[in-house]
């Protein structure tokens, strides 16, 4: 079977003056992930690294941040853009304080996620993917988050919320500052 041979590039020492946007603490956290893989496979740490960088930047990524990360992980910039644009957890525009990610995949859809979506759209007068004018909430649609057993569900911040009803989600949002 023919396979593509991965090109083994020597790991180049990155000139520190090129790395400016990501903090030392974040780099330390990224290094922990890099250490889990073979030195030739630094790029394997790209997903956790993007999470770290996104969190530090207040919830979204920028081209400059991704470019810096590409340099650090020794990968083509386009390869970082590919990963960052593929996964719905990565944001490319500033978002609200709380990100409400509603699953609309098959199980949640069958159990009424459409009703939840409609409710939130009406409640905040925004469309999916938009942020409330006070900058508090961003509502977006995501693919299956692996909690079909509790459908319909959503992810807010890092918390899963299951068996949603319009009343239940109102109560959850009420408690958020």
């Amino acid at each position: 079977m023919r396979t593509t041979k991965l090109e083994k590039k020597p790991v180049e020492v990155v000139n520190n003056s090129d790395l400016m946007l990501i903090s030392k603490q974040s780099y330390a956290a990224i290094d922990k992930w890099i250490a889990k893989y073979h030195p030739e496979n630094r790029q394997a740490a790209v997903i956790p690294a993007l999470h770290i960088v996104q969190e530090e930047n207040g919830g979204h990524l920028t081209i400059a941040l991704m470019d810096e990360l590409a340099l650090y992980l020794n990968m083509p910039t386009i390869a970082v853009y590919e990963v960052a644009s593929f996964y719905s957890m990565f944001e490319h525009k500033p978002i609200g304080k709380h990100k409400v990610s509603i699953c609309t995949n098959i199980s949640c859809m069958l159990r009424g996620s459409e009703e939840i979506v409609e409710h939130l759209k009406k409640k905040f007068a925004i469309n999916l993917g938009e942020t409330t004018t006070d900058g508090k909430f961003t509502v977006k649609e995501v693919e299956c988050l692996g909690a079909c057993v509790g459908a319909p569900m959503c992810l807010i911040g890092r918390e899963y919320h299951e068996y949603l009803t319009p009343e239940k989600i109102d109560a959850i949002l009420e408690k958020l500052e």
Partner: peptide, 15 residues
């Protein structure tokens, strides 16, 4: 780009 030209400029972004 990746295999022949040696420079990965094009990619598949989004999902």
């Amino acid at each position: 780009g990746a295999e022949v030209a040696g420079v990965r400029e094009l990619g598949a972004t989004g999902r």
